[in-house]
Each structure stands twice: as structure tokens, then as C-alpha cells.
């Protein structure tokens, strides 16, 4: 067994044991924190496909995170007000059912990613970073100034949405649900990474000419990866909105894009479990440092700087060594 596999298993074990322990000890807030980490991890896994595997440094993934969140907010707020979304040409009602909300979140963020990706992927390097940032900002300002769904105030959903057979208001049950989603996403991602598509995507990052010479269009490869990546991040956005029972434009802000990227870096770029470990450490830091000083961002910044400068492979890279090729 490779060391990275052991680390991955330990990570999953910690992620299961800590909330269960908290449940036994009746500390529901720790379960909430763990749920937050799991949801951020899903967002990071989504971005990691574009960023790690595809080398597409997107500084606009908050757009998909927020679109997923708004999919939940809009559907649930219509359902709670008993007002249909539209009556013509056909009736669309709001819903409080998670599976339907997830589907809508995934489809709408995938469509957004397809459109943004189709335009942005014409550029590369710094231009790509900046154009994704620009699209993110566009959607952010749109959400703030569009009055129909609360503008900057956002949308409040009073009761968490339902999932068949579960009481989602119970923290441990909602955690379990999110954890299952994470596991499914991780499993799917490991399949993608080792599929012909995943390998082609990775080699398009390392050597686009070689990919082109075997008759694969790197643009299309990247577009598919970007769309998938946006869809997964959108799904996590819907979960995040449900965790908070609230959605607002802050989910769309560029700092959010930066934070999702930070999870990946802390854990390890292009590592399957990188974002998972990264999100866990981030949440832990936020709470430990946030308790130490009002100025905890200084320490967070310093730590991040140290990781970027001296521990390039992130935590997994430092623990497992460079067994997996990545550059």
C-alpha cells in the first residue's frame, strides 16, 4: 500500500470518527464544523479537476459555488412561499426536496461553466486566471444588484430541505448525507483521473502538442473538464446553502474563489484527497487561530505563505513524498 493511500484512509477515518465522537459527547457544533469541512472539500475536489489535473487556474469558481447555492435558495424560497417560479409556458414549482435541488444545481452550474469555459479557454495562463475572475465578478455584481432574490441581503430558507428517509435537521444525519456525497464524488473523481479522458487531460497540461498530434483537441478536453469541475463545485454550493439555510452574494465573491483554491494548496495540488485534507485543516485553523487573536488573518497568511514557499506538495506532498508525478 502506498503511503498516500494510508494518508487517505486516515483522513476518511478522522472525518468519520470526529463527528461520531462529537455526537456521542453531545457537541453538535463540532458536527456542524465537520459538515462544513466536508462541503468545502467537495468544492475543492471540483476545482481540483480543472486546476490540478487540467492545469486551469480558475479564479472564478465561486461563481459555480454561488450558482449552486442560489439554485437551492430560489427553489426553496418559492416552495416556502407557495409561489411557482413560472406559470407560463409551463408550470414550474419550487421544491424542498434535496435530490431535485441537487440536480438543478448541478445542471445550472454545469451550463454556466460550459458558457464561461467556452469563452475563457480561448485564453491561457494569466489571461485565463483574469478572465475567470472577471466572469465571477460579473455574476457577483449581478447578484448584488438584482432585486428579485434579495440582492445583497440574500435569501433565507427557514427549514432545511428534506431528503427521503432522513431528518436533515439532525446535525449528524445531515453530516452523514454530505459525507456520502463526498465519498461518491471522490470515487467518481478517482475513476475520471485514471480514465482515458483523465490521462489525456493531464498530458494536455504537460504537453498540449503531443495530445494534439494524436488527434485530440485540447480545447474540448479542457472544456469538458471545466464543465465537470463547475458542476461538482455547484453541487457543493447547494449543500453549503442548505447547511446555513441561507444563500447570499458572498458565496460568489472572489475571496471565496481564493479560499477554495487555498484548500487545494494546503492539502496538495492534483492529489485526490488534497482538498479534503486542506478543507479540514482550514476549518481547524479558522477556529483555533480565530480564538487566539482578532488579527488571525495574519497568521493564516503567514502559514499559507510558508506552505507555498517551502512545502510545495501541500500536506500530502510533505507526508507521502513525490510518488505521484505532478508539476
Amino acid at each position: 500500500m502506498r503511503r498516500e493511500h494510508i494518508i487517505n484512509l486516515v483522513t476518511l477515518a478522522v472525518l468519520v470518527v470526529v463527528p461520531l465522537g462529537a455526537w456521542v459527547l453531545d457537541e453538535p457544533f463540532i458536527i456542524t464544523l465537520a459538515t462544513r469541512a466536508v462541503i468545502f472539500a467537495i468544492a475543492g475536489v471540483g476545482l481540483n479537476l480543472a486546476l490540478g489535473q487540467g492545469g486551469l487556474v480558475s479564479l472564478g469558481h465561486a461563481a459555480f459555488f454561488g450558482i449552486g447555492g442560489y439554485a437551492m435558495g430560489i427553489l426553496a424560497s418559492h416552495a416556502q412561499a407557495y409561489a411557482p417560479l413560472m406559470e407560463w409556458p409551463f408550470l414550474i414549482e419550487g421544491t424542498k426536496s434535496m435530490p431535485i435541488i441537487w440536480l438543478v444545481a448541478v445542471v445550472s452550474s454545469a451550463l454556466a461553466a460550459l458558457a464561461i469555459g467556452a469563452l475563457s479557454l480561448r485564453t491561457s495562463g494569466v489571461y485565463f486566471i483574469m478572465i475567470t475572475l472577471a466572469f465571477g465578478q460579473m455574476i457577483y455584481y449581478f447578484a448584488i444588484s438584482w432585486p428579485a432574490y434579495g440582492g445583497e441581503d440574500g435569501l433565507v430558507v427557514y427549514v432545511r430541505n428534506g431528503f427521503p428517509g432522513l431528518n436533515t435537521l439532525d446535525p449528524i444525519q445531515f453530516f452523514g448525507l454530505c459525507f456520502c456525497v463526498l465519498c461518491i464524488v471522490l470515487w467518481a473523481m478517482s475513476r475520471v483521473q485514471n480514465s482515458a479522458f483523465g490521462l489525456a487531460l493531464a498530458s494536455a497540461r504537460q504537453n498540449p502538442v503531443r495530445v494534439q498530434s494524436v488527434g485530440i483537441d485540447p480545447y474540448r478536453l479542457r472544456l469538458v473538464a471545466f464543465t465537470l469541475s463547475g458542476a461538482i463545485t455547484g453541487l457543493s454550493g447547494a449543500l453549503f446553502a442548505d447547511l446555513n439555510r441561507f444563500v447570499s452574494p458572498t458565496m460568489l465573491s472572489w475571496q471565496m474563489s481564493g479560499e477554495i483554491m487555498v484548500f487545494i494548496i494546503i492539502g496538495g495540488v492534483a492529489r485526490l484527497f488534497g482538498p479534503v485534507i486542506g478543507a479540514m485543516i482550514f476549518i481547524l485553523l479558522e477556529h483555533v487561530l480565530g480564538g487566539v487573536s482578532e488579527f488571525w488573518h495574519i497568521y493564516l497568511g503567514a502559514l499559507l505563505l510558508m506552505i507555498v514557499l517551502f512545502a510545495k506538495g501541500g500536506v500530502i506532498g510533505a507526508l507521502a513524498g513525490r510518488e505521484v508525478a505532478h508539476d
Binding site: 479564479l59 481564493g258 483554491m261 487555498v262 494548496i265 497568511g301 499559507l304 505563505l305 514557499l309
Partner: peptide, 8 residues
């Protein structure tokens, strides 16, 4: 991007 984000 990340290192300078940390500097911010």
C-alpha cells in the same frame, strides 16, 4: 497567486 493572496 496564492503567495500574494497570503500577503494581502
Amino acid at each position: 497567486v496564492l503567495a500574494t493572496f497570503a500577503l494581502i
